[in-house]
Computed example of a mutant assay.
Amino acid sequence: MIYSISDLEQLSGVQSHTIRIWEQRYNALKPMRSEGNTRFYDDKQLVRLLNIVSLNQTGLKISKICSLSEQDVDKLLEKEIQEIPRVAKFDYYVNQLLKFGLSYDEFSFELLLSACIEKFGIIELYKNIMYPILIRLGLMWRKDDICPAQEHFLSNIIRRKIFTAIDSLDLYHDSNDKTWLLFLPEDEEHDIGLMFAHYVLKVNNNKVIFLGTKVPLESIEKVLNDIKIDNVLFFMIKPRPLKVAQKYIDDLQKICKKINIHIAGNNQIIDQLILSKNTNRFNSLEEFEDNIKNTSK
């Protein structure tokens, strides 16, 4: 693939200005030039940048890293991965997992992700590693319906890990457990955040009815008529006209009546919505987790 310097900024977390300085001072990258003299980069240059950033997170100076051969860089990275408890900064793992994912290296991605799960647990892993990866790839704030292959590859592995974590939890519930209905609207399909919410709710002894993606309001209404639901949680992520978003909220609030509604996702949209008294918004993962802990039995 071909990347602009702004693409590198998004994927590496390093500002474009800093990338240019590293190029000029340390020969960190060797950009190609278009006919209009615009910088562009290939997969090899992106991987090199992610490696440089990863090693910088371990304490090595940029000047030292850029003077190393590719073989020496690989050896240092392998050593850091084998000594995973020693690395304190989550950005290291974010960059390495991105590197493995963008090159379709499933074995290395799975190996490092499993080690992170063992070290941090699924909740800390999602908040500090998985979620930043998804943000960098743009999964949470898509402007179109076409998902690049790397995004599919990475998100499917992450989704599989969360499913495994959910399946490992006890299915027992008593009659006092709160029941949550989780779903995404008909035009929403990125469900990793919803799956993580499913995990957090179950860890905190809540009963969860997970409907998944692209659920019509008619289906929500049927569930609410069939069984007692205490809370409804959905994500509104894709950009959409304010009138369309407000109508959806209004229609959902009519269906839910006095049931607690919780919304999360794209704050640029949610900030403009008029919400009823029984509709709550979550602005962050921490806010959601705190709320669940305080309301669970």
Results as ranks from 00 to 15, higher is better:
Leu55Val: 03
Lys293His: 05
Asp251Met: 03
Ser296Tyr: 06
Tyr172Asn: 04
His17Val: 15
Leu137Val: 01
Asn260His: 14
Lys30Phe: 10
Ser67Asp: 13
Ala149Ser: 15
Thr18Gly: 02
Phe109Ser: 06
Glu124Cys: 03
Gln253Arg: 09
Leu252Ser: 03
Val208Gly: 01
Cys256Tyr: 04
Ile123Ser: 12
Trp180Asn: 06
Leu252Trp: 04
Lys254Ala: 02
Leu233Met: 14
Leu139Lys: 04
Asp72Val: 00
Tyr92Asn: 00
Leu194Lys: 09
Glu286Lys: 15
Asp105Gly: 02
Leu125Ser: 07
Ala149Lys: 14
Gly101Ile: 07
Asp145Leu: 11
Ser175Glu: 15
Arg142Ala: 14
Tyr26Cys: 01
Tyr199Val: 08
Gly59Gln: 00
Asn267Gln: 15
Asp42Val: 10
Asp290Val: 14
Ile249Thr: 08
Asn266Arg: 13
Ile259Lys: 13
Asn267Glu: 11
Tyr93Lys: 02
Val232Lys: 06
Phe183Thr: 09
Asp187Gln: 15
Lys127Ser: 09
Arg33Gln: 14
Ile84Gly: 01
Arg136Asn: 02
Lys127Gln: 14
Leu201Arg: 04
Gln15Ser: 15
Val208Phe: 02
Glu78Tyr: 12
Tyr131Met: 13
Asp174Ile: 08
Ile52Arg: 03
Glu289Met: 08
Leu76Asn: 11
Arg86Ile: 07
